[in-house]
Each structure stands twice: as structure tokens, then as C-alpha cells.
């Protein structure tokens, strides 16, 4: 049942769980150990080539977030290489440059946090996006950012760990800031930044479940994602 854990401080190879936790504050290694503590019977299933399995429990949810961050990071990496970006206004260059860094930072964070439990790199398919077209790029960015917010909002209830819930909360509000900015670039000065298409009469933003999110994402991802072990 032991999984390799990331050991940023090279601390914990065979450390007893409690002993280690007494040594200090939550570290990535500690986070990994949290998984080990409960993982008697939820080993990741062997997967077929070209397919990734997100796994179960909090690991599964973090892999789900990691998958979405991979998608977003890959998208903005393409954006800043494209001709829309090269010719974009100063404001839009700053925004797209920031979003590329933020999403790359999120992706690398989850990869490190998950350690050996992390899924591999997803193969993306952006053939439906025209990276020379402002409209095409902004519409795709809107889709990704809104999807990310709805995914985090929908997944929060399944996280058992308060620490991971807080980390997800720290990220989701930034995704929402992104989403609002992209929407305002598409329709400046309007109410679209928080439009009725995603916010209901109670003032609540929509949530999407795992199936809805991964179905939407599958238009841009070639790798098959097995999320059958995620909590429900």
C-alpha cells in the first residue's frame, strides 16, 4: 500500500506517520502521508495505456484538479505562442501572460502535492481553437475558466481534508477572477463578468459534477480519463 511520496525536505522516507507529524507543520510530505494513512483498500487501478485513472478519495479529487490545471496551463502556453497574443493590446498581453503563469503554477503545485499519486501528462487537443483569432482564444478561455470554477465549486463537498479544501478555495477564487476578466474582455463594461448564464437567482454560481466537467473537457483532451473511483 505504500506509495512514493514527494519529499521536498528529504525527511520522511520511512518515518512513522505520527512521529513525522509531531515534527512540524503540514508539508507536502505530510499531505502525502495523509493519503497513506487511509489507503488500505483504494489502490489505484491498473490502467490501460493511453488512459489515466484519477484514483479515489482526496487523491482522486486532487488529480481531478490537476487534470483541469494541466488543460488550462497547456491552453495558455499555446496562447502566448500564437499570433493573437503577439498582436494583442497591452492589457490583454498582461492578462494572458498572468494567466499562463498562474495556471502553470497551479499545475506544478498539484503535481508536487500528489507526488507519485499524480496522474501522468494529459495529451491535449486544441485543434478547435484558432490561436490567431482573438474571439476564438477569448471564447476558449471563458470556457476553461468558467469550467474550472464550476468544477472546484462542485468538488469541494467531496474533499475530506480541511487542508485540501482550503487550498482548493484559494485557487478557485483566482479562477473566478480570471473568468470575470475574460468575460469583460469579450463584452466590456457589461454585467457578463458575473452573468445570469452562470449565476442563479439566489446569487449562487453554478456547480458542475465530475461527469459534466470531464465531458466538457473531453473536447480538448485526447487522453481517456477514468474517474469511476471518485466519491459520489
Amino acid at each position: 500500500m505504500k506509495k512514493e511520496l514527494i519529499k521536498p525536505q528529504g525527511l520522511v522516507k520511512n518515518a512513522n506517520r505520527r512521529q513525522f507529524l509531531k515534527m512540524g507543520t503540514l508539508t507536502i510530505a505530510g499531505a502525502g502521508l495523509l493519503f497513506v494513512g487511509c489507503n488500505d483498500d483504494d489502490e489505484m487501478m491498473p490502467t490501460m495505456p493511453g488512459m489515466v485513472s484519477l484514483g479515489s478519495g482526496d487523491v482522486g479529487i486532487l488529480n481531478y484538479a490537476y487534470a483541469l490545471e494541466q488543460l488550462e496551463a497547456a491552453f495558455y502556453a499555446e496562447v502566448i505562442k500564437g499570433s493573437y497574443f503577439a498582436n494583442a493590446s497591452a492589457e490583454e498581453k498582461i492578462i494572458m501572460g498572468d494567466l499562463e503563469k498562474h495556471e502553470r503554477a497551479h499545475r506544478e503545485f498539484f503535481k508536487a502535492a500528489l507526488g507519485a499519486s499524480a496522474i501522468g501528462s494529459l495529451e491535449v487537443d486544441f485543434s478547435s481553437i484558432d490561436f490567431s483569432s482573438r474571439t476564438s482564444v477569448l471564447m476558449a478561455a471563458k470556457t476553461f475558466e468558467d469550467l474550472g470554477v464550476a468544477a472546484y465549486n462542485g468538488a469541494g463537498q467531496f474533499l475530506e481534508s480541511s487542508d485540501f479544501l482550503l487550498i482548493a478555495g484559494k485557487i478557485v477564487s483566482v479562477e473566478a477572477r480570471h473568468a470575470a476578466a475574460i468575460r469583460d474582455l469579450i463584452n466590456p463594461g457589461s454585467a457578463d463578468f458575473a452573468g445570469d448564464d452562470i449565476i442563479d437567482a439566489n446569487g449562487l454560481e453554478r456547480t458542475l459534477n465530475f461527469t459534466q466537467v470531464l465531458t466538457a473537457a473531453s473536447a480538448f483532451v485526447k487522453t481517456e480519463i477514468d474517474f469511476s473511483q471518485l466519491p459520489s
Partner: peptide, 15 residues
């Protein structure tokens, strides 16, 4: 879930 769904709306406003 409701709190998270309000939280992201506030973030959109802030942005």
C-alpha cells in the same frame, strides 16, 4: 457548496 458558490461570485465582483 452554497458558500463556495457565493465565494466565487464575490471573486468575480472583486475582479
Amino acid at each position: 457548496t452554497a458558500a463556495l458558490s457565493i465565494h466565487s461570485v464575490e471573486a468575480r465582483h472583486a475582479s
